[in-house]
Amino acid sequence: MNSLHEAFAQAAALVASGDPALVDIVLLSLRVSLSAVCIATLIGLPIGAAIGVGRFPGRRALIVVLNALMGLPPVVVGLLVYLLLSRAGPLGELGILFTPAAMVIAQSILILPIIAALARQAIEDAWTEYQEQLRSLGAGRLSAAFTLLRDTRFSLLTAVLAGFGRAAAEVGAVMIVGGNIDGVTRVMTTAIALETSKGDLPLALGLGVILISLVLILNAAAYLTKEAAQRRYG
């Protein structure tokens, strides 16, 4: 277990050094993944709420598809977005392949089903429970959906965190659409893949330790915020 020990030492040394290149990589990782989470949340929560309280033909099939899409392979999403954004593809004109914007798009697509599917379940459960009450108050489906989004906000936070975890951890999609360009599109996961392929396993694992710590800190912050909010609003 020598190399594990070495990895933690590497991680500590990296953090202590405050290497500007590492800081850039960390910041880009956060920027890309948090942007993707924001976009996927904005689109995913309304979709989840609509399916959760709505009644329409094909709803059950849609739920199955949505749940299945939670398992979208990142490399497939990466490939699809690559083909879309490639100069030879339909959106090639934009010229955003190998930029952080392309990475945000890929990760948004990847985590949208996770956020939407988990939100759908939370809202549907709440809808089953409070349906009669809400109806008796004269709420239509639309206003019920908004009320439920608000009431289930703590469950929805978990959905959003699940999405963030997936975005921060994936390497397949950002590698393909970002290209792992030094100083431009290199993020934590692609840097880890690169160091692994250079055979510098302790450094790769050290970067991994830093990435996991970051995700941990963000989750702790979200949890504490949630607790504080719960105390305040009940």
Binding site: R31, L34, S35, C38, I39, T41, L42, L45, P100, A101, V104, F146, L149, R150, R153
Partner: peptide, 20 residues
């Protein structure tokens, strides 16, 4: 419509992040 306000704030944040 607290939820909507928060969404808009989040959207704005996302836009900022994406256009650094």
């Amino acid at each position: 419509m607290d939820v909507i306000r928060r969404f808009l704030a989040a959207a704005f944040g996302a836009a900022l992040l994406a256009h650094a």
